[in-house]
Write a protein that binds this DNA or RNA. Structure first.
Lengths: 196, 196
DNA sequence: CGAGGGATGTTGTCACTGACTACATTCGTT
DNA sequence: AACGAATGTAGTCAGTGACAACATCCCTCG
């Protein structure tokens, strides 16, 4: 931060910030611990103190990503009109916005977690999705949604959004298509979940 | 294949087969051109004749993956009862089966294609999805589905399936959940798309 | 205080990798 | 049979991740 003594102060977050930048600009495969160290003005061995290996760095990025996604979703719901439909649309918009703005990060976030040491990432994901869960539960209590396990309803809804975002990121779905397709998908989901 | 002369005969496909194996067993990051060459009993420079760089190998794997996915989807539809609902369910089952059986490959297939030289992959994807398109068009003609651009309907449907599979692969959705959630999602999709 | 122990950063090293080059062998065509 | 294109080999280079030994700093406890 300042005149740079032997110790950096908060290398860990500095590395994470820098890493997310390269991730966004040049993709995962361009993320190298050594270059990251270089860019942060620190020796090539320093990152190891904070991230045991490359995968640990990726996991930390993913965890952080879920935390930010959770905040985004939360903000969106908070700022939306207080009725279920508006909230769902806001949630969807926020998710897809995050997903397309941080495509490489999202890929990382969803990279297989059947791996030792991935528990924190997994838990971060659960926390992020808790927002959606809350919206669904509230809608159910208000009688605006069919009853049923909110967790599984939330997962289906998020899966749809995630699938759309993933297809857009991969180029299979054009970016402009998203803007019409997402609200459409939300409507259809809601229609299928409305009590009758 | 046999006494091994100077030329291999069909190194390219041998490499692809071997690569897919390691991909399945140890993930993308474990795929190395040199080890691949070693495992195929060929010099470390040989793969370069067939895949200009590592990414070209990954692209070829993805392309091949889409071809096989297309075949799987096609077979599923062909073997299903000739009514739309059964076909949709068969399609969904086949997609999710492929997606979970070849998780790492699927990740590769959907890795960002906004990249030079990714056109073949993109086109392979289109061909694979043509099956779903056909099923939807047929259902529309039979009056069992709302009219509308079949391409965009297909994309939403596939996105939902893909999202569910992706969440399962990442561990966010338990594998057993899929079996109940997928048919459920199909029903809901169909319900929202049925003419009324 | 001030010593010492833990946390953090540095330097050096190793095996491995992808990319590239020059060269060898084989195949297909004429 | 000859020759050019396709395919495989051998050698090399810079970059990388992992690791170990060492340096520096911070903080606590006597």
């Amino acid at each position: 931060m300042c005149a740079r003594s032997y110790h950096h102060g908060n290398l860990r977050s500095a590395l994470l910030i820098r890493a997310e930048e390269t991730l966004r600009e040049r993709g995962v495969q361009a993320l190298s611990l050594r270059e990251l160290a270089r860019a942060t003005g620190v020796s090539h061995g320093a990152p190891r103190r904070h991230f045991g290996d490359r995968q640990a760095l990726l996991d930390a990025l993913a965890e952080d990503g879920f935390a930010r996604l959770g905040r985004d979703l939360d903000d969106a719901v908070r700022e939306a009109e207080p009725d279920s439909i508006a909230r769902f649309h806001a949630l969807a918009r926020a998710y897809v916005l995050f997903a397309t703005r941080h495509a490489a990060l999202l890929e990382l976030m969803y990279a297989g977690k059947h791996r030792e040491g991935a528990e924190p990432v997994y838990e971060a994901a659960e926390r992020a999705f808790a927002v959606a869960l809350g919206v669904i539960s509230a809608a159910q209590e208000a009688g605006e949604l069919v009853p049923g396990d909110p967790e599984s309803l939330a997962k289906v809804a998020l899966a749809t959004l995630h699938g759309l975002a993933a297809m857009a990121n991969s180029g299979i779905l054009a970016g402009e298509e998203l803007e019409s397709v997402v609200p459409d998908a939300v409507e259809r989901l809601l229609w299928g979940l409305r009590p009758r």
